[in-house]
């Protein structure tokens, strides 16, 4: 695909190609299916609207991911997601030795993090971005990424327990 005039079919194909991965990332960051869907939808539409900046079909998923994080960062600011989001129930600390078969535990653990820290954890450890890439994506310093990620992991460990998220997981 070139930078000029992709067809609706081109875009539709790109939507189907990008959607699952972006949705998973969005869900991990937001913890809400409807919001995740809305975020990915907005990011993809914005990516298409900025198509003159997307250099190739191969580059589009990464561009869409960056766009998605920019949109998410904007939402964090505008929707008042600067602090932790309330949850209906407090997550319980895992009993030592318990097998983590319930994915909801991680979901609830992520929910106690402030949005930006949650985004850092997801980008760093799910998307496998480098510290520099996370910093660039979120528009903050590498030092900020390191300190906030460290703080996020401490909070996760406090909820999940050191056995499930041992100290060496920090980096």
């Amino acid at each position: 695909m070139t930078r000029s005039s992709p067809t609706d079919e081109d875009f539709a194909a790109l939507v189907h190609a990008c959607w699952p991965r972006l949705y998973r990332t969005a869900y991990l960051i937001l913890g809400n299916a409807a919001e995740a869907e809305d975020l990915v939808q907005t990011a993809l539409a914005r990516t298409f609207a900025n198509w003159h900046r997307v250099r190739s079909l191969d580059a589009a998923p990464a561009y869409a991911r960056t766009t998605m994080m920019n949109v998410a960062a904007s939402w964090f600011r505008k929707k008042g997601w600067r602090n932790e989001r309330p949850t209906a129930t407090l997550p319980e600390t895992v009993v030592e030795g318990e097998d983590l078969t319930d994915r909801h535990l991680l979901r609830e653990a992520l929910a106690v993090l402030p949005p930006r820290q949650r985004a850092m954890v997801v980008l760093r450890y799910y998307e496998d971005l480098s510290v520099a890439e996370v910093a660039n994506t979120l528009g903050i310093t590498t030092g900020g990424v390191k300190s906030q990620t460290s703080a996020a992991l401490r909070r996760l460990r406090a909820v999940l327990g050191d056995d499930l998220l041992p100290e060496k997981s920090q980096s």
Binding site: R24, R103, L106, R107, V121, R124, L160, L164
Partner: peptide
């Protein structure tokens, strides 16, 4: 060394 948190996230996402 980040395998554990990565695995947890992947498991959650894949589910």
């Amino acid at each position: 060394m980040n395998d554990r948190i990565h695995d947890l996230l992947v498991r959650e996402a894949d589910g």
